[in-house]
Design a protein around this nucleic acid. Structure first.
Length: 564
RNA sequence: UGGGGCGUGGUGCAAUGGUAGCACACCGGACUUUGAAUCCGCUUAUCUUGGUUCGAAUCCAGGCGCCCCAGCCA
C-alpha cells in the first residue's frame, strides 16, 4: 500500500478509533472465534480478515479461539484444518485458545451468578422450556423452579456438574425476564447436560457444557478482547452479552460490534448444505475445486492475495438484504483472481480440443524452435523455446468452415497467425465419413517467421497451437459455477439448481512440452483460454490441470448475442 | 402480531448538511503477435411522503419494503 492509497475505513474501524480516542480502550485485541465443526469457506474469510486487519492496523493482537462448547459437533480434524487454511490465507495470531480450556473459570462465574440470585437450575423438560418461552406475541411463563433458593440452586448445579442427572433433565438458566420482547432475554439457558460423546479436548471431565451466549462474552473478557466483532444475526444477542458482563461486574468490558456477513451468488454457504454436497457425492470432497471452501479454492488455483483483495472489494457494512448479509457477485471474485494471475503467471500454449493441421509446404521432418514471451506483463519473466513442425494441433473453436459474421479466426481460404510462429492459410478441409472436419491442409508463409509479415499485411486473428510430435498429453478439468441459479437456495431444493456442466473433463489435451515437468500447485495462463493450475493429483507422465478461471472472452459474448 | 437491523445504479461499497463517487458487471471505442491485458468513453441509483434548512442521501416525523430472532446450535 502506498501513501496515496486511502486507509481502509468503515464503521467498525471508526468505532475502534473512537474507543481509542475516548480512552474506553487503550489497546486493541480481537479474536477469531471459529467453531471446529467444519472447513473454512469464503464467508468466514471476511470475519477473519476484519479481525486480523483491525488488530494489525491498530497495533493490537489477534487470538485464534476455538469455540468448542458443544462436544456433539466438534472434532480435532477441523481444528487442524482451520489453522492450516487460515495460515495459508496469511493470517497470523498470537495465541491459540480453546473455550474448553476455560471451563473451570466459566463454571466459577456461573456459581457467582447463582449466588447472586441471577441464575437458577430449571427442571423443565426441553419441551416445557420451549413451550413456556412463549412467542413473539405471547410472553413466556416463569418456570415453576425459577424461585428456588440460592442454596438449592447451588446444590443442584454442582450435582449437574458431577454427573448425577441425565441429559436434558435440567439446565442452568439466567434469571432475566420471561416476558421480554427480545427472546434472548427470556431466561436464556447457560448450561445443558451432555454426557456423550466425550469432548475432543476435555474428554469426560465435563458433562455440562456452556451455551454460546454464556461462553462468548465471558471468554472475550477472560482473554482481554476489546472488540468482539461478529455477524449481524448476533445483534439481538448483544443485550444478553452485556447483561452477563454487567452482572459479573467485569471491568473493561469488551465491545461487540456486528457487520453484515458475506454471501456469494451461484453458491451455497451453509455448512449443512456443503456437507450434503460432499456426503452425497455431488462433489469430490471438501477440497473439490468447485467448493467455496478455502481448501477447495486453493486447489482450484485461487491465491490468498486474490481472496484478500476480494474481501476488501466487497467492503464492510451493515446492509442486509440477503440472509443476514450481502450478496456479492462471484464475477468480482473472478476479476480478483484474473488480476492477480495476469501479473504473475507464466504464459503457455495448450490445445484443449485438438484439430489437426498439416502444413503442406513445410519440409517433412524439420523442426524449428521459436522464442516465446513468458509474460508480456513482466519483462523480467524472460522467454522460452517452443518447437514447431509440419503437423500441429490448433483449437477446434478456432476454425469454422462457414465463418459467422465477426468471426476472425481460421476458415477456408483465410489467413491467420500462429502465435510466435508463422502466418498460415487454410487451403482445404479433410472430413470423415460423417462429414465432420478432422484435418486442415494449410500452407505457411516462410517470410512471416516470428509472426510478422514483411510486406505489412495484417491478419485479424492469432491462434495458439502445439506441435503434434512434441506436445505433452494432459487431463484438463474445466470447472464452472456449481449452481445455475444466482441463489440456489431461493426455491425448494438447492440440489435442483446444480449445474450439470460444473465439471467437464478433457481426457487428452495437448500441452507445449515445457509443461511436462509442471509441479502440483503451479499456475499458468494457457494463452487465449484461461488460468490453470496443476492439480494435487498430478504426476509426471500423468499431468492433471484445473482451470481456475477462464479469460474474458469477447468472441463468446458476441456469439451468444448473435444467436439470441 | 413482539424485539432487533437494514434501504444509494444490475451487484457491492463511498459521500458524515454543500458538484452523488469507486469497483465489478453492462455498452461503445482505441490499441493489440492472447477477441486477454492496457487505455478512453458511456448508460443506469439516493424506498416513499411530508417537515427543518439558503441547501438533505445525510437531520426530524409518518409510511412502505427487505433481513434476522421463538435450538438444551453457534
Amino acid at each position: 500500500m502506498t501513501d496515496s492509497t486511502p486507509k481502509p475505513s468503515d464503521f467498525i474501524r471508526e468505532a475502534v478509533a473512537e474507543d481509542l480516542r475516548s480512552g474506553r480502550f487503550t489497546t486493541v485485541r480481537t479474536r477469531l472465534p471459529p467453531e471446529p465443526n467444519g472447513y473454512l469457506h469464503i464467508g468466514h474469510v471476511k470475519a477473519f480478515l476484519i479481525d486480523y486487519n483491525i488488530a494489525k492496523e491498530f497495533g493490537g493482537e489477534l487470538d485464534l479461539r476455538f469455540d468448542d462448547t458443544n462436544p456433539a459437533k466438534e472434532e480435532t480434524e477441523y481444528v487442524d484444518a482451520i489453522q492450516e487454511d487460515a495460515h495459508w490465507l496469511g493470517i497470523e495470531w498470537q495465541r491459540v485458545l480453546f473455550s474448553s480450556d476455560f471451563f473451570d473459570l466459566l463454571y466459577e462465574w456461573a456459581v457467582k451468578l447463582v449466588k447472586k440470585g441471577k441464575a437458577y437450575v430449571d427442571d423443565q423438560s426441553p419441551e416445557e422450556v420451549s413451550k413456556n418461552r412463549g412467542s413473539w406475541t405471547q410472553p413466556g411463563i416463569d418456570s415453576p423452579y425459577r424461585s428456588r433458593s440460592v442454596e438449592e440452586n447451588l446444590d443442584l448445579f454442582e450435582r449437574m456438574k458431577n454427573g448425577e442427572f441425565p441429559d436434558g433433565s435440567r439446565t442452568l438458566r439466567a434469571k432475566i425476564d420471561m416476558a421480554h420482547g427480545n427472546m434472548n432475554l427470556r431466561d436464556p439457558i447457560m448450561y445443558r447436560i451432555i454426557h456423550e460423546p466425550p469432548h475432543h479436548r476435555t474428554g469426560k471431565k465435563w458433562c455440562i457444557y456452556p451455551m454460546y451466549d454464556w461462553a462468548q462474552g465471558q471468554n472475550d473478557a477472560m482473554h482481554g478482547v476489546t472488540h468482539s466483532l461478529c455477524s449481524i444475526e448476533y445483534e439481538d444477542h448483544r443485550p444478553l452479552y452485556e447483561w452477563f458482563l454487567n452482572e459479573l461486574g467485569i471491568e473493561n468490558k469488551p465491545r461487540q460490534i456486528e457487520f453484515a456477513r458475506l454471501n456469494l451468488n451461484y453458491t451455497v454457504m451453509s455448512k449443512r448444505k456443503l456437507r450434503r454436497l460432499v456426503e452425497e457425492k455431488y462433489v469430490e470432497g471438501w477440497n473439490d475445486p468447485r467448493m467455496p471452501t478455502l481448501c477447495g479454492m486453493r486447489r482450484r488455483g485461487y491465491t490468498p492475495e486474490s481472496i484478500r483483495d476480494f474481501v476488501a472489494r466487497a467492503g464492510v457494512a451493515k446492509t442486509i438484504n440477503f440472509r443476514s448479509g450481502v450478496f456479492v457477485d462471484v464475477a468480482v471474485l473472478e476479476a480478483c483472481i484474473r488480476d492477480d494471475l495476469n501479473k504473475l503467471s507464466p504464459r503457455k500454449m495448450a490445445v484443449l480440443n485438438p484439430l489437426k493441421v498439416v502444413l503442406e509446404n513445410y519440409p517433412e521432418g524439420q523442426v524449428e524452435e521459436f522464442d516465446a514471451l513468458n509474460n508480456p506483463e513482466d519483462a523480467a519473466a524472460g522467454t522460452r523455446k517452443v518447437p514447431f513442425s509440419k503437423v500441429l494441433y490448433i483449437e477446434q473453436d478456432d476454425f469454422r468452415e462457414e465463418p459467422p459474421p465477426k468471426y476472425f479466426r481460421l476458415s477456408p481460404g483465410r489467413e491467420v497467425r500462429l502465435r510466435n510462429a508463422y502466418f498460415i492459410k487454410c487451403e482445404s478441409v479433410v472430413k470423415d465419413a460423417n462429414g465432420a472436419v478432422i484435418e486442415l491442409r494449410c500452407t505457411y508463409d516462410p517470410a512471416t517467421r516470428g509472426g510478422d509479415a514483411p510486406d505489412g499485411r495484417k491478419v485479424k486473428a492469432t491462434l495458439h497451437w502445439v506441435s503434434a510430435a512434441h506436445a505433452a498429453p494432459a487431463e484438463v478439468r474445466l470447472y464452472d459455477r456449481l449452481f445455475n441459479d444466482p441463489d440456489p437456495e431461493s426455491a425448494g431444493d438447492f440440489l435442483a439448481n446444480l449445474n450439470p456442466d460444473s465439471l467437464k473433463v478433457i481426457e487428452r489435451a495437448w500441452l507445449e512440452p515445457s509443461l511436462a515437468a509442471a509441479q502440483p500447485g503451479e499456475k499458468f495462463q494457457f494463452e487465449r483460454l484461461g488460468y490453470f493450475c496443476v492439480d494435487i493429483t498430478s504426476a509426471p507422465g500423468k499431468l492433471v490441470f484445473n482451470r481456475t478461471v477462464s479469460l474474458k472472452d469477447e468472441w463468446a459474448k458476441i456469439e451468444k448475442r448473435e444467436k439470441s
